[in-house]
């Protein structure tokens, strides 16, 4: 079983990235999600100051109206 299929809607990554500015923080966030195999993601929050940025990156697994991966027989590419 792919554990991600049991995520009700989304995974949030809450972290702090060392980066020069917000733009770089956005790029790193995208790279991080791609490296984790998450293609449907959004940067919910980013604030840069000093050495880096506080970010909340969200990877959607199931959006409302989808055929949910956590329903029996509802698996899709998460």
């Amino acid at each position: 079983m792919d554990a991600k299929t049991r995520v009700v809607d989304a995974l949030d990554i809450e972290t702090f990235l060392i980066c020069k500015n917000e733009e770089e923080g956005r790029r790193i966030s995208a790279g991080l999600m791609e490296s984790m195999g998450c293609s449907d993601f959004d940067l919910v929050y980013i604030h840069h100051e000093g050495i880096g940025a506080r970010v909340r990156i969200r990877a959607y697994v199931n959006r409302p109206g989808d055929r949910y991966t956590w329903l029996e027989g509802g698996e899709k590419d998460a």
């Binding site: 060392i18 020069k20 100051e49 000093g50 050495i51 880096g52």
Partner: peptide
């Protein structure tokens, strides 16, 4: 180097 480039210009 990280410290030098990461000075807090606008602390909350």
């Amino acid at each position: 180097n990280v410290i030098a480039t990461g000075r807090v210009e606008n602390p909350r």
